[in-house]
Amino acid sequence: MSGLPAPDPAPLWRRRSALAELVRWTGWLLLVLLFVVCWELMTREQIWAFVWDAPRQAGDLFQRMVPPRWSYLDQLWRPLWDTLNIATLGTLLALAIAVPVGFLAARNTTPSRWLVRPLALFVIVASRSVNSLIWALLLVTILGPGLLAGVIAIALRSIGFIGKLLYEAIEEIDPRQVEAVRATGAGGAQVLDYAVVPQILPALAGIAVFRWDINIRESTVLGLVGAGGIGLQLKASVDTLAWPQVTLIFLVILATVVVSEWVSSRVRHALI
């Protein structure tokens, strides 16, 4: 031991300076304070007696909800079929509009970055900013209640979703493949067909199936505002306090979503 040179004091290393550390901790402290204050403000109006009563109320509701009224199933097949149709037709309609919009919005395929691209992006943002249920509410007022309002509501919301994911996929393609096809003397449409479309097809299929899956879930509630599907039955049952029917509807929706989830994951696996 004595032969070894005395080790230097271990060098000091800190990720941040003392001041930076202090600033960070103060930041966290302020965040916690903000949370406490907000909580206090939000719950000032709360009637706590109701909250303490909640477990008993929940138990009571649960007792009224079971067992499900299985005989009601006969009246659910048709609305369920309507719901699937709303989701599927809505997704197809959205695809027909979103695919061109996506090409117009992608930096590398848009005909004009200063005119067309902002317009396409606006369409996408406008569609994404409004929930399907709100679209349905508006459309039921305009078109009257029914499936058509549901299909269009689903489509309007999906255009933005599909358009956004699609234009991002288009912007991520390999530009060398595009360059190679252009170098053969191919025209604009041919470059899209031979160099761009093959590269985005798997992404597009994945996006479409994913959105279809989401739309099945969304279309189950559209009936709440009169836009057709199984939601109509749900609203009618809740309004008439027919809790065993509500339970059955929940179970049917759950089963449908599980099946659609399974289908969409199988399709996506097959495509990649």
């Binding site: 060398r176 493949q177 360059e179 190679a180 096809v181 170098a183 053969t184 160099a195």
Partner: peptide, 12 residues
């Protein structure tokens, strides 16, 4: 034209 890294359209 012939390219570095081939630049074939991979999925065709």
């Amino acid at each position: 034209m012939i390219f570095q890294e081939y630049a074939l359209v991979e999925r065709l």
